[in-house]
Structures are given as C-alpha cells and as structure tokens.
Design a protein around this nucleic acid. Sequence first.
DNA 1: TCAGATTTGGCACTAAGTGACATAGCGGTC
DNA 2: GACCGCTATGTCACTTAGTGCCAAATCTGA
Lengths: 208, 208
Amino acid sequence: MDQSKIEQGRLAVARHAAELFWRDGVEKTSGDAIAAAAGLSKRTVWRYFRSKEACIEPLFHVTGLRFVELLRAWPREVSIETYLHETLGSMLQTEQEIRDGVAAARLISRLKTEPAIRCAYLMASAQAEDALVAIIAARAGLNPDDFDVKLCAAAAMAAVRVVDEDICTATFTHGRRFEHPEVCDRLAAAIRTASTLPICDPLASQAG
Amino acid sequence: MDQSKIEQGRLAVARHAAELFWRDGVEKTSGDAIAAAAGLSKRTVWRYFRSKEACIEPLFHVTGLRFVELLRAWPREVSIETYLHETLGSMLQTEQEIRDGVAAARLISRLKTEPAIRCAYLMASAQAEDALVAIIAARAGLNPDDFDVKLCAAAAMAAVRVVDEDICTATFTHGRRFEHPEVCDRLAAAIRTASTLPICDPLASQAG
DNA sequence: TCAGATTTGGCACTAAGTGACATAGCGGTC
DNA sequence: GACCGCTATGTCACTTAGTGCCAAATCTGA
C-alpha cells in the first residue's frame, strides 16, 4: 500500500515542524519555515496537512501508535506489569525512534502553554484510542463495536495520557529524571486502575 | 469579575458559529460570516478566538461545565445513579441552555467527519476535566494535585465523552430517541465503571 | 461633565491555506 | 530505450485567517 509512503512523508515534515515548534514556539514558526526545513514547497506541506498545528500530529501519532502496537503483541497469559517491564525498554529500537520519542515528550511538556500543541496531541490520542479499541476487543473477547470496549479504550488511553503528561512535564520543565522501571510501574498501575474490563491480568486460555 | 463578560461575548459568538458550522460545515463558513452573524467586526472575533475552529469552544465548554457544575453540588451521601436521576433533568433550565445543549449535541454528532470540530470538542473536554479535578478531590478528600485524582478525573471525563458521542451520533445520524432515564443510566454506569476512586457511592460522613 | 481605562472598529498588512495548471518522476508496455 | 498514463510535486495567483496599530466609542468613577 502506498498510503504508507504518504505517511512517511508526513512524518518527515512533522519531525522538522516539531523541532521548530520546540525551538521557536508555534506562533513564531511559519509554514514557510516548516516547508523549507523539510525541503518541500509550501504547497506540498498544505497538501499534507490541513493546518499548521496539524503538522506535528504524525509525530504524536507514531509515538502513540508504537506504544499501542506494543500492546497488540501482549500475550494473553501475561499481566500488564510483567509485559511492560519486559518489553517497554525495547519499544524504541532505532535512533530515529528514540529521537521521535524525545521530540514528542518535549512537546508534551509544553501542553500547558501552547494550545496548538495540545490540540494536535489530543487529536493524535484520539487516533491511538481507535487503534486501542481493536486490541482491547481482541483481548477481552468482545466486539470492537461494543460500548464497553470503547469505554475501556477511552479510559485506558486517558490514563496513559495523564501519566505521559505528568512524566514529560516533570522531566522537561522540572528537570526530574526517571529510571525505566519507574515509568513501567506508573504506566502499568495507571492502565490497571483505569481499565474497565479485566484485561490487565493473565486471561484464562481460550481457543484461537 | 469582568472576565465573565468576555466569556458571555465569546459564548454569544460561539452560538452563531455553531449554527453556521452545523448548517454549512466548517470549511464553508468564513470568519466574516461568523462576525456578521454575531453582529461584531471581524477584528473583535479574532480578538476573542485564536482560530476559526476555536469559535465553538465556548459552547462545548459551557455545556460541559454545566454538567461538571451539577456534579459540584453532588451530596456526599448520595450515589451517582440517584443523583443523576434526580438532578440531570433540571440541569438545563432556560430555553437558551436547552438550545445550547442541542447545538452542542448536533456538532458532536459530526465529530467523525469534521476534524476541526473534534479538535474544539477535545480542547473543551480538557478544560472540563480540569474543573472535574477539583470536584473529585473534594469528594475523595484528596489534594487536587494528587496524581490519583487527576487520573480519576481523566477517566471519568473520558467516560462521559464516550457516552456523549455515542448518544449524540445515535440521535442525530441514526435518528434514535432517548428517554431521559436511559441517558442517566448510561452516564452513571459509565462514570461508575471508569472512576478510579470510590466516589460513586455514598461516602462515610466526614466533618466539614 | 470630565479624565482615564477598557473595548471595539477600520484598515493595512502578514501568514495560512486553496485552485488551477504545468512539470517532473515513476512504473509498466512494446 | 521511447512511449504512455499516473501520481506527486512545484509555481503562481488567489482567497481567507489572523495581527498590529491607531482612532473612535463605550464604560467607570469622581
């Protein structure tokens, strides 16, 4: 599918936009500057994105999705705590993925002061929530259209969002440092607490 | 405080903007049209709002806040189910408040097709979540800065959001009709399920 | 009624975003 | 390799979103 090529292009732009938004702020960053940094014409940028603030959505989207994709591989017989401790460390494989994670985290730490960033972040979270629905449905053995599944996905995503925001602001605006296990603990605890379906504990084995 | 005067002005504009967004779509509605409908100069509209899509935020904000304010008056010795059944019906008092509710609900039913509306809706929900934090903190006897309180507020707000979206799309795009008790039941059930702190049941009486 | 402060409008301007068409690149086919 | 159709991109003129600046209006209090 060549949809992914477009996604790659959008992501490339998003990385540059994120850099500029972080360095100069959203207001002081022009569409021209983003286009120039990405090595594209302005026109192409506006073909990729409906607005300036949407330029960073793919970055949040991809980082959010990396986490959600990690959950997709979550074996039924493993608890959330065990799974995250075992796998979260290897979620960001390449240098690029790590850079994306840092870039996203930095921007998240600016959510309070830059409404445009919050907007993009929330939009991307909504997409991640959609992806999460399918995973939770599979794990709970329910239909993705089921209201309870949607509710659980929304609550779990909200939990991730709160932890994210908390950790990112603590890191980038208060200079705190987090060791890896602590992040796993907090994410797992929040997801467990917020989950409205019994998905966090090992599940009774089931055919299929 | 004259901050509320500005809020009234913003809300007045938002009502017109919502009408136009609903009738013509966001794209086909110009800033000029909004200003004209509100009887203001374009300049004043852009002083009130940072972007066109933000023009409807106050409508979502006020309807969301009306619900949150209802929860503020929630007595400690009453369960969420009882409280909502007893009070939700009287939440929207004036004709204007009812019109606001309908206008917001109609727009929510367009969330799938109009990203700009989703953006505004999510931003307003984030504000409502902030307001909810204080209420939950009070009810749970915890500090508003407490992580668990923020988590509970986020999860509860997510629950309200999912119910909202579900009911509004069912109403306006599938023509379903909801009786009042059903709405109460669904909201109460979702909030109870998603709440991560024991706030939904009557609380042991406590001085103060 | 006057002074001072705040709010609004008018207008010129910059920047965001679109439409229409030309061009470049990229398989496939002969 | 030349030809073809297809899609992605660029160019440029254009509309609309959004800001800066100053003047007019409106509000406030003595």
